[in-house]
Amino acid sequence: MPGISFTSYLYPVLLLIASNIFMTFAWYGHLKYRSAPLLAVILASWGIAFFEYCLQVPGNRLGSAVYSAPQLKGIQEVITLLVFAGFSALYLGQPLKWNHWAAFALILVAALLMFKE
């Protein structure tokens, strides 16, 4: 396709990586603060999720020019798992075990099938 460059493929992925970091903190960051009131962590999570959406929506919008919707979802799932693996080990102090990695590998294979013609 004329006008489609490498960056057309890269920018959406970078935006989705950044958005996923925010999403992971919004969804799981409060687990480190179990004594915090539930309403407070819900409101904090919503605040964090706002920034996640500010990156995710443009990432998917730009990505739709070069990826199909199923491909974007597959990319997002792989990003989610990789970001979560690092988050779980580094932030929560809960490294993944072999069975978690094996399950993630199977999801990776499923995501890669999205790119088969």
Rank of each mutant, 00 (worst) to 15 (best):
1 M>V: 11
2 P>C: 10
3 G>F: 11
3 G>K: 13
4 I>Y: 12
4 I>T: 15
4 I>D: 09
6 F>S: 08
6 F>N: 09
6 F>W: 12
7 T>P: 02
8 S>G: 11
9 Y>R: 07
10 L>T: 08
13 V>A: 04
13 V>Q: 02
14 L>Y: 04
16 L>A: 01
16 L>E: 00
17 I>M: 08
17 I>G: 03
20 N>W: 03
20 N>C: 07
20 N>I: 00
20 N>Q: 14
20 N>V: 03
21 I>P: 01
21 I>V: 15
23 M>I: 09
25 F>C: 02
26 A>I: 00
26 A>T: 01
27 W>Q: 08
27 W>V: 05
27 W>N: 02
28 Y>Q: 10
29 G>H: 06
29 G>L: 09
31 L>M: 14
32 K>S: 12
33 Y>M: 06
35 S>D: 13
35 S>R: 12
36 A>V: 15
36 A>M: 10
38 L>M: 13
40 A>G: 04
40 A>Y: 11
40 A>F: 13
41 V>T: 15
41 V>Y: 08
42 I>K: 14
44 A>F: 05
45 S>P: 03
47 G>I: 04
49 A>T: 11
49 A>H: 13
51 F>L: 14
51 F>T: 06
52 E>D: 12
54 C>K: 09
57 V>N: 03
57 V>M: 08
58 P>C: 02
60 N>P: 00
62 L>C: 04
62 L>S: 03
63 G>P: 01
64 S>Y: 05
67 Y>E: 06
68 S>K: 10
69 A>G: 02
71 Q>I: 03
71 Q>F: 05
74 G>K: 06
75 I>R: 02
78 V>E: 05
79 I>T: 02
79 I>V: 14
79 I>R: 02
80 T>C: 06
80 T>Y: 11
80 T>M: 12
83 V>A: 00
84 F>G: 05
84 F>I: 07
84 F>L: 11
85 A>E: 05
87 F>S: 06
87 F>C: 05
89 A>D: 09
90 L>G: 07
98 W>H: 11
98 W>I: 15
98 W>M: 14
99 N>S: 14
101 W>Q: 09
102 A>C: 10
102 A>V: 11
103 A>I: 12
104 F>N: 07
107 I>T: 07
107 I>H: 01
107 I>L: 13
108 L>S: 04
108 L>D: 08
109 V>D: 04
109 V>Q: 05
110 A>N: 10
110 A>C: 12
111 A>N: 05
112 L>C: 15
113 L>H: 08
113 L>T: 13
113 L>V: 10
115 F>P: 07
116 K>C: 10
116 K>W: 14
117 E>V: 09
117 E>Q: 14
